[in-house]
């Protein structure tokens, strides 16, 4: 099975159990790689479906203060994509059960070489990538390499994306399509846009792949509200905040919180 198929199947499996799949985001190396490893196992035990694992970049221009700070903590370890792939390969050697997609800005991948990255990602067992600063018009070289290696090339759409463009983006997105809930950057929010459910329904009508909603989603109530309107829900900054506060003691707390989110994702 390809990486893209694994991601899609993990989401569909949750949907078959009448719930939205939960996709937690964490930044690798925050605060260190051992903690990241423990956190990833905690996510699996808590019932998450797919993991979005951040590769830190010096200039994260789509991220709010929480993930910016996580990035800074992670960069102190001076990580490389080689290290990242080695880490992922290590997890799968220990039979880690969830598909992992990397979330990272374009420059490190470009510098590594897209062809080489796609090849080595597949060898490591990584299932795909989300590259927030690589819109449709610039994505062709990456889409080609990802397709060749069966990796999920998760594309993003936003509230500002016109309907016709949304359809074109949905056609090339594999694994899932990432719907950005707000016009803005990542980070927990008290309120989500009023028409979000409606927009998600429209998005799902045209998307051939499952639709995940992310940005700003931080609480079980929000997950509960969105669960009927999306195949998957991404929660990031809320988890990163726990890691920030608890450091190496975070896995236990993260596990409890993600369990709550997973139960909130049930479509009652």
């Amino acid at each position: 099975m390809t990486g893209a198929e694994k991601v899609r199947q993990a989401i569909e499996e949750a949907n078959r159990k009448a719930r939205a799949a939960l996709i937690p985001y964490l930044c690798a190396w925050d605060p260190d790689l051992e903690t990241t490893r423990a956190l990833l196992w905690a996510l699996a035990e808590a019932g998450a479906s797919v993991v979005e694992l951040g590769f830190p970049f010096s200039d994260p221009l789509a991220d709010g203060p929480t993930i910016q700070a996580a990035t800074q903590r992670a960069l102190r370890h001076q990580p490389s994509l080689e290290d990242f792939l080695e880490f992922v390969a290590g997890l799968y050697a220990e039979d880690y059960p969830l598909p992992i997609v990397v979330m990272g800005y374009y420059n490190p991948f470009f510098r590594f070489g897209l062809k080489r990255f796609a090849r080595e990602a597949r060898e490591a067992g990584l299932c795909g990538a989300i590259i927030p600063d690589l819109p449709l018009e610039e994505a062709r070289p990456w889409l080609r390499e990802a397709r060749r290696r069966g990796l999920a090339s998760v594309m993003l759409v936003a509230p500002t994306t016109p309907a016709e463009r949304l359809e074109r983006i949905a056609q090339v997105s594999t694994g899932f399509l990432y719907y950005v809930s707000v016009t803005g950057i990542t980070g927990a929010r008290d309120r989500l846009p009023e028409d979000l459910a409606l927009r998600l329904d429209l998005c799902r009508e045209v998307s051939p792949v499952p639709v995940a909603v992310g940005f700003g989603i931080a609480r079980p109530e929000q997950v509960k509200m969105l669960a009927p309107h999306a195949e998957a829900i991404v929660v990031g900054s809320a988890l990163v905040k726990i890691v920030e506060a608890e450091g190496s003691r975070a896995p236990e707390k993260v596990k409890r919180f993600v369990k709550d989110l997973v139960s909130a994702a049930e479509r009652s």
């Binding site: 789509a62 690589l134 018009e137 594309m155 936003a158 994306t161 463009r165 803005g184």
Partner: peptide, 20 residues
């Protein structure tokens, strides 16, 4: 049309900004 000067330039931004 893609905003390229040879291989340089372009639009490497979050999707939210593309319509703007």
């Amino acid at each position: 049309k893609q905003g390229k000067f040879g291989p340089f330039g372009g639009r490497f931004v979050p999707e939210t900004l593309m319509p703007a």
